[in-house]
Computed example of a mutant assay.
Amino acid sequence: MDILLRQLYQDQASKERTCAILVLKKDDSSFLSTDGFDAIILLISDGVTDWVSKHYEASGKRIAFHTMSQDMMHHSLITGNQRRLIDWLVNGKIVYDRNEFMQEVKQRIDTFPPGDRTKKLTIQFAKLLRRFEEGKVLFSRGYILDGFSNLFHALHHLARIAVIKDGFYPEVTVWEQVKKIEPEIHKLYQEALNSEEPLNKRIELLILALEVAIISKLELGANHFLDVLRSIDGEVSVSELLSIQEVQEYRIDLELILNVLIEKEFVTIVKKETPAKAIFQTKYKINDFL
């Protein structure tokens, strides 16, 4: 098997733009993380702009060869939209490493620097708010199962916040992590899933629990965005906020975070006159006590 895999990646090791190559065999990890393949080869290269995948078969073994850029890898680590990538990076065997590039990545995952952690918390908090609001509205309009599905996803994001807060990357088995880190959230998950209460009643209880959690996690979850607001001198428009590079990973939900911060008096609305009578442009400013 090792000889077969080497034939696929060995020519990439000599290329100048290759940063690292990792190999993950099905026996070394879960079936889920290898997507059913017998082996995964992950190539990090500065010579690509997209995530490229190729599939091979040799001696009855199926192999997936993934290529991505440094930027894409770091973006995925922050946003958490490719959780299997964490497993590949943590458990994959390094077969080529230019200037210890991958060793530094693994160390960054292990130490989970505060800057990465703060941004990742806000990304997950934004997703929590989005799922919660959509679930609540769907439930109120009689779409019971759709409402429950969204609220259950909100609970998953709450679980990931608990894991990140404790200094770990959320893994595929996030509920096993949460069981040890914050058992109250795990209990809420079990009750939502297994309670003998009617579904309507479970949803009502879940909404109440999530509302309390959102309030209690607000400053922690929104801290990255609050830091952005603190760095701005004076008031700022929403279009200016949306153009800031630091918020791009949660840009789609930024207005939702902003409205919650206004509601909880973390942020103040500043009205600016416009040429139209009785119509004001609204700008925003973080409150002084923060």
Rank of each mutant, 00 (worst) to 15 (best):
E196S: 15
P114R: 09
F139T: 03
L22A: 05
K61Y: 11
F125N: 02
H153R: 05
K201P: 02
K201F: 05
P198L: 10
G142L: 14
E235Y: 10
G221W: 01
V137W: 12
G47H: 03
D146M: 12
Q82N: 09
S29P: 01
R251P: 02
A20V: 03
Y143C: 05
I244W: 11
K15D: 08
I40E: 11
L151Q: 02
N99P: 03
L32K: 04
I109M: 15
Q124R: 09
L155E: 00
P183L: 13
L158F: 09
Q103N: 13
S76P: 00
I109S: 04
I3D: 14
V212C: 07
G221N: 02
V137Y: 13
G92N: 04
I214M: 14
I181S: 10
I252M: 14
S195G: 15
L229M: 15
T118G: 06
L208I: 04
N200Y: 05
N91K: 14
D11N: 12
K136Y: 06
R230N: 10
G60I: 09
L8K: 09
G234F: 03
R6V: 01
G221V: 04
Y143T: 01
A154Y: 01
L42P: 00
L210P: 03
R83V: 08
H156A: 09
I181E: 02
Q177S: 08
F225E: 00
A162W: 04
L220C: 06
A278E: 13
F289S: 12
K285F: 08
E191C: 04
G115A: 14
H55E: 12
L226G: 00
K217L: 14
H157L: 08
W51F: 10
E273I: 11
E263W: 07
K25D: 01
Q82P: 00
T34C: 12
V95I: 15
Q190Y: 09
I203M: 12
K26Q: 13
K26I: 02
D87L: 10
F280I: 02
R141H: 10
E182D: 13
P114L: 14
K61C: 07
L206M: 12
E263I: 02
L261S: 01
M102G: 04
A222P: 00
F139Y: 15
L129F: 02
A192P: 01
G60P: 10
I86A: 11
E240C: 07
P198F: 07
G115I: 08
V247C: 06
E211D: 13
R6Q: 14
